[in-house]
Amino acid sequence: MEKNKKSKHEVLGSDIGVYWKPKSKIWVAASIATVLLALLVDVLVPNVQFVNPVSYQVFLGGFAAVLTVLWIASRYVGTIRKKLYHKAQFIFAVGIVLALWDLLTTKSGIFKLPFFPGPVQIVDVIVKERTTLLISTYYSMRLFFVGLVSGTLLGIATGILIGWYRQWYYWLFPVIKISGVIPAIAWLPIAIVLLPNSFSAGVFLIAIASWFSVAFMVSGGIASTPKVYYEAAKTLGAGESFLLFHIALPNAVPDIFSGISTATGLSFLTLIVSEMIGAKAGLGWYINWAKAWSAYDKVYASIIIMAIAFSIILAVLTVVRNYVLRWKNGIVQ
């Protein structure tokens, strides 16, 4: 019975079963050791490429220090212990990969510049270019949020109209369905010509990318509200607007979140592509600009920043979603 439960959680990856890696202290120690190994490799092995190793070494030293602090804290805090033990093997591998990568690039030149910069160079570039990268990230995020939020709000509004009123469904649903299959970025040439600047063009593209997926999901969620909920509400004295805002819309909230998830993914894509093609600022623009100068270390640097920024957005979205949908936690689907 107990065994059954475990394997189910492994499959579903549900909350209880997330931290399932071995509960051995050795792996935490080993992970700190490999991070220190990467540091040692960089300090001791001579370079064949000219680089400034300070940032990378500070980074590795800091990483090892944080791990050590967590390791000590894990003796006292159960949640830290679970997470750290679970992640230890992965961090162990990261340390080895960093050491190897360093050896194959900066230390030996087996992989050649400019296409394969070493970790030392990338970390150094991130630190050196931090102002430009920060400003670019700021521009990208601004464009992203304005576009996603306006698209989502429009999507929710359209979704409600389509899901609730037959007339709106009749006229608008086919439009949504057909436009939904067109990647938003296809509108780029038109957006650039018709809108006053690259910012508004970007907002427009991201907004339509998210609009369609949100509208589609919301209308579906509203339309799929079980009839018995409406009937129950009616026998409790509900009128039309109550049915919409207290029954149909809450019932559609999980779908709204799926819509937003899809919209977020599409928006990342649309954001970067539209910046690469049409903008004068932002991470997409930065990548293109770096490529023009064959500064591939900067390309990697901005890719890493993107990965971090987008992961944070997705993580925040997950937290918000879990909070809003707390009534659903544990409901067997």
Binding site: V228, A232, T235, G237, N251, I331
Partner: peptide, 16 residues
């Protein structure tokens, strides 16, 4: 209408 209260076989509570 509310003057005729109804309890469904499965309760039909609003899960949210």
């Amino acid at each position: 209408g509310f003057e005729r209260g109804y309890v469904f076989q499965q309760g039909a509570l609003f899960p949210w």
